[in-house]
Amino acid sequence: MGIQDIIEGKKQWRAHVARVKALPPDYQIVYKEIQKYLFKVGPIDLPDGNLLSGIIDFFEEGVAAGKGVLELIGNDVAAFADDLVKDSRTNADIYQESISGKPNTAEK
């Protein structure tokens, strides 16, 4: 990763955080908990940012429609988060593949 990528990444991240902070309190709470969970679960497409910014897009629509966050996604927030990454590979998958010696794109 070059310096440029890091700087770009930081700028984008700041813009993202600003969008989170502009959400109503209930949305912010739920967003932050989901983010924390997803970071721990570790789907591999998380770092490219589309998954997280997509959630904000979706939440902003919910706000515009005058809905509460649980009205939008249901009470089982964890189920919502799991469904988002259901068929994504996780860091753990990569790790397991590499110790079992299966081919990995990084080595091609």
């Binding site: 990763m1 991240w13 924390k36 970071f39 721990k40 570790g42 591999i44 998380l46 770092p47 860091n91 990569i94 790790y95 590499s98 110790i99 010696g101 990995n104 990084a106 080595e107």
Partner: peptide, 21 residues
């Protein structure tokens, strides 16, 4: 038998998490 290369994206993700939070 684990090569560092495979670990890189994982550690990159972890660092990202730590930096961002």
């Amino acid at each position: 038998d684990f090569t560092g290369r495979n670990l890189m994206p994982i550690l990159d993700g972890v660092l990202g998490l730590l930096e961002e939070t």
